[in-house]
Computed example of a mutant assay.
Amino acid sequence: MAKKILAILSNYGYWGVELTGPMVKLEQAGYELTFATPRGMRPVALPPSYDTSYMDPPLGKCVTTPFDAEQVKSIKDSPKLDNPKNLSAWVPERPYYSTENFLRKLEAYYSELKKLEAELSEYAGILLVGGSGPLIDMVNNQRVHDLILAFRKMDKPIAAICYGVACLVFARDFNERKPIIEGKHVTGHCIEYDYHDGTGFVGTDLNIGPPPYVLEYMLRDAVGSGGGYHGNFGKETSVIVDYPFITARSLQCSHEFGEQLVNMLDKGLKRYGW
């Protein structure tokens, strides 16, 4: 029986190697990826992520290697990405307080979550793929949050890269409302690597300029005084394991991220990079 990983991708654009990097390592280790998107539409790779001439503004260099571009092209149109799970149909929605029969509907919501948690037991871990798209439909998505919380409850690896890491800031128990990464060590986009302009999305001509928030500041606040944010500015990669979380700063970390995720799953790795 195949070992399974649940991979969440945006419907507004994922960065190619942030999927293929960990995906190749996981498949080589015998894992099968099940894909899911917020609305069930097929995920689309951001065009710059398979363009070997694209210059990353903060880094001032081309960031997509010919090897990575070919891997991204080989998967972006693959049948593997056809018919992903639809989170809006699969994961229950928490009701508004103002809804009629709120208490009964809230009870039903928690009952459905229990059923979902039982279904998720077949997965060994969850992967949150980055890119600009997650800013729109993953980061503040209650259904994505509930999946993360379920894997934390099961004490299984929670892997996030680039703006997928931002989901961990907002994934909080609805009653406790405390950051689940409080006291943990994480990495993510440091401010030096944030765009000044050009943050765009698949399916729209919208350019919001810089990202709508500074991920480094949010992560520093969320981990609190007992944890640590590690941007590792100037170092080519930044991958941090503080079980059950593994976080990676950006696309350059994708292969190392995949390798250490496999080490978490198969070799019991609990700490790495700090």
Rank of each mutant, 00 (worst) to 15 (best):
E182F: 01
D173W: 02
A2V: 12
E256K: 05
G188D: 09
E119Q: 15
H185P: 00
D197A: 10
K73V: 08
A29R: 09
P48C: 04
Y54G: 01
K73M: 13
P43Y: 07
V44L: 04
C62V: 08
Y195Q: 09
L106S: 10
E18I: 00
V202K: 05
F67E: 15
L59G: 14
V241C: 13
P84V: 07
E18Q: 13
Y123Q: 08
F102N: 04
D68T: 09
I180F: 05
R177Q: 14
M55T: 14
K235H: 12
F35A: 08
L81P: 09
P43M: 07
I126V: 15
R220H: 00
E117P: 00
A29P: 08
P43I: 13
I8F: 06
I158A: 00
N83A: 11
A45E: 12
R42C: 03
P210T: 03
I8S: 01
A124I: 00
F151C: 06
E70M: 13
E93R: 14
G60A: 10
G13T: 05
Y109L: 03
R39P: 00
T52Y: 12
R249G: 02
L19F: 04
V17K: 15
A36G: 10
V144R: 07
S53P: 05
E27V: 04
R94L: 12
M264P: 09
F170R: 11
H255R: 11
A222F: 12
Q142T: 11
A2K: 14
P210G: 09
G228C: 10
Y213D: 00
I75S: 00
C190D: 08
G209K: 08
D197T: 13
D68M: 11
V129E: 01
D242H: 12
V186P: 04
S121F: 01
T199H: 03
L46H: 15
A89E: 15
R172Y: 01
D77R: 05
G227I: 07
A7E: 02
H255C: 02
K153E: 06
Y243C: 05
H196F: 12
P38Y: 10
N175L: 14
I148C: 03
L269Y: 06
T37Q: 07
S78D: 10
N101R: 11
P38V: 12
H145A: 14
S238H: 10
Y12I: 02
D146L: 01
L113W: 07
G125A: 14
P43G: 07
W15L: 13
G234D: 02
E259M: 13
V44S: 01
S225P: 09
G125T: 00
K156F: 06
H230M: 04
Y213I: 02
D51H: 03
F151M: 12
L251T: 10
T65N: 03
V223L: 11
D173E: 11
T37S: 06
V214C: 12
G188T: 07
